[in-house]
Design a protein around this nucleic acid. Structure first.
Length: 420
RNA sequence: GUGGCCAUAGCUCAAUCCGGUUAGAGCACCUGGUUGUGGCCCAGGAGGUUGUGGGUUCAAGUCCCAUUGGCCACCCCA
């Protein structure tokens, strides 16, 4: 038998109410903030992601699903949304429309990683991007949208992790300070951090090794080295967050993996879904458009992994409404009744009455058991006796009463009862 | 890519340590208990080449090796 590929998953019917619910909240919150949907292809030129995400990042170096297609083109299954958004923004001249462009999307992304709790090779992301505006009020609006989204989903005790990673003007100066600090304590840090120091120095701040903790604690903080522009931007953003009473922690250790982030970076963490606790992560990427050959365009956005979101909802006991089910089961007894029942089921559905028709000529008892299992409200019983009289018996399973209803009145009768 | 744990019915698990008839239970499913009436209850039924391959042994679900898959953690990320 064939099996799912590693890190891929099926979404079974019993999980669909969660997905439906989350999609509804996405539609609701994006409409509220005036964000419009933009869908981009799942497949793009490999070079787009290499340029935007950055050579040297794990995503590019070892996690992309890249292959050569039949036309000899190097293509990549999208490992994130932002690059494709920027490409589409420039290619479709959205930069010529009134700014900002406030956009969102929902769809699968792919990364070749080892699966673990809350991590899959294919996962679904809700992605939000606001392009064309540098104003920290835009950062706030995007974060606010994320906050609002999780509130609508039923989460409590929300809390942002927040930091600024500076910009090309001030970050290099900080990185030098950081490296100098680490050189002083070089014999105390783990091997991994020695490597990170060369490849992506900021990441040492994120190390979980016990031996590295004292070095991290005494390390210089980037917020102390921001240039005036970055400092002011960060100050404005925190001012807006304070005013809106959205809880946040300035986390000096929060450094996100993608090269393109500038200034604002933030995450939302939840408990109860394992080590991969971030259900939302994003930041500002003002240099990205130029990087891929477009006009200078500031941008701020986030991605939220919906599998993790749904895991967190389950962990926190968030209830979601069930999907609508038929409220009528049409039971029949014998071949003649079945001849009548099959088209009758269709007729009732044309009257907007959901009907389950049992299959396999089973006993009435068996059909009643099915009705109970399916939790229908009414069972319509059609047998020889009823046909002779031109009626159906209708049993109300909730009040345990049974009525004779003339066949020509059946749809109206049921509609009336179901509307109550 | 690295490390740890695990693999028995559709699901959750027992029998594995210390090898020994026909691998069990609960839930779910099907049938019956009413000529044609659900939920509870009762009776019965179906469902397994014990992940796969090899080895040791008179004998392997059980011991050994390999392999595949899963889970969890690291790396990194949503």
């Amino acid at each position: 038998m064939y099996k799912r590929l590693t890190g891929m998953q099926d979404i079974l019917p019993e999980d669909q109410p969660y997905w439906r619910f989350v999609q509804e909240k996405i539609n609701q919150v994006t409409a509220l903030y005036g964000f419009q949907r933009l869908d981009v292809p799942i497949l793009e030129e490999a070079a787009l992601y290499v340029r935007s995400v950055g050579p040297g990042t794990d995503i590019v170096d070892k996690e992309m699903y890249t292959f050569t297609d039949k036309g000899e083109d190097e293509v990549t299954l999208r490992p994130e949304f932002t690059a494709g958004f920027m490409r589409a923004y420039v290619e479709n001249h959205l930069d010529k429309r009134p700014q900002p462009a406030k956009l969102f999307s929902v769809g699968p992304i792919f990364r070749y990683e080892r699966p673990q709790a809350g991590r899959f090779r294919q996962h679904t992301q809700f992605n939000v991007e606001a392009l064309g505006v540098e104003d920290p009020a835009m950062d706030f609006e995007v974060m606010s949208l994320a906050w609002h989204f999780f509130s609508l989903l039923g989460f409590h005790g929300l809390h942002f992790q927040l930091n600024s990673t500076g910009c090309p003007n001030c970050r290099p100066r900080y990185v030098e300070k950081l490296k100098a600090h680490y050189q002083l304590h070089y014999d105390q840090i783990c091997d991994n951090c020695k490597r990170r120091l060369v490849r992506s120095p900021l990441r040492v701040l994120d190390c979980k090794e016990d031996r590295c903790q004292p070095v991290i604690a005494s390390a210089p903080r980037i917020t102390d080295y921001l240039c005036d522009d970055c400092k002011q931007h960060f100050g404005q953003l925190t001012h807006y967050l304070d005013a809106a009473q959205m809880a946040y922690t300035v986390n000096h250790r929060l450094v996100r993996g993608l090269d393109y982030y500038r200034k604002t970076v933030f995450e939302v963490w939840v408990e109860g879904i394992g080590a991969q606790a971030a259900v939302c992560g994003g930041g500002r990427y003002d240099g990205l458009a130029q990087e891929i050959g477009g006009p200078p365009t500031p941008g701020i956005g986030f991605g939220s992994g919906l599998e993790r979101v749904i895991m967190a909802m389950k962990a926190q006991g968030v209830a979601v409404p069930g999907l609508p089910r038929p409220q009528v089961l049409l039971a029949y007894l014998g071949a003649t009744a079945k001849e009548k029942a099959v088209p009758l089921a269709v007729d009732l559905r044309l009257h907007d009455i959901g009907v389950i028709l049992p299959f396999g000529n089973r006993s009435l008892k068996s059909q009643m058991r099915q009705a109970n299992r399916e939790q229908v409200h009414f069972v319509v019983i059609l047998g020889e006796n009823e046909l002779a009289k031109g009626v159906a018996q209708v049993k109300d399973l909730q009040v345990h009463e049974q009525f004779d209803v003339p066949l020509e009145d059946l749809s109206a009768w049921l509609s009336g009862k179901l509307a109550m």
